[in-house]
Simulated assay, not measured.
Amino acid sequence: MAMAMQKKANVRLPPEVNRILYVRNLPYKITAEEMYDIFGKYGAIRQIRIGNTPETKGTAFVVYEDIFDAKNACDHLSGFNVCNRYLVVLYYQPNKIYK
């Protein structure tokens, strides 16, 4: 067990990788439950915030407990088909304004 943890800590992640994912192109009617079903497969989630204003509709932030789970989800869910919409999954960058 200790060996596995040690190995994981030495993995160098790209600088943009973090625990918060920004998701675009979501179906407008998606529920938090459905979001947990999709994103929860990749690890423990701290919170999900789904956009609810006209400007943020179809977007969400997914916050994972662990950065490696977030990376795994980002790698696997970008382009994932939900109700005939392909998800765009990016790492949240605080200095970037999302439109």
Rank of each mutant, 00 (worst) to 15 (best):
L13K: 14
P14G: 14
P14A: 15
E16S: 14
N18I: 11
R19P: 03
L21R: 01
Y22P: 09
Y22H: 15
Y22G: 10
V23Q: 01
V23F: 07
R24P: 02
Y28L: 12
Y28G: 06
K29G: 06
K29Q: 10
I30C: 05
I30Q: 04
I30S: 03
T31F: 10
E33V: 07
M35Q: 07
Y36F: 14
Y36I: 05
F39E: 11
F39N: 08
K41A: 11
Y42S: 07
A44R: 07
I45W: 08
Q47I: 02
I48A: 10
I48C: 15
R49H: 14
R49Y: 07
I50V: 15
I50R: 12
I50L: 15
T53S: 13
T53Q: 10
P54W: 09
P54I: 10
E55G: 07
E55C: 08
G58N: 11
F61I: 08
F61W: 09
F61V: 05
V62R: 00
V62F: 00
V63Q: 00
Y64A: 00
Y64K: 00
E65I: 11
E65T: 08
D66C: 04
D66S: 06
D66R: 02
I67D: 00
I67R: 10
F68R: 01
F68I: 02
K71I: 03
A73Q: 03
C74T: 03
C74V: 06
D75T: 15
G79A: 12
F80M: 07
V82M: 05
V82R: 03
N84C: 05
R85I: 02
R85G: 01
R85F: 05
R85P: 01
Y86E: 07
V88R: 07
V89I: 04
Y91G: 04
Y91I: 08
Q93P: 01
N95Y: 07
N95S: 10
K96H: 05
K96P: 01
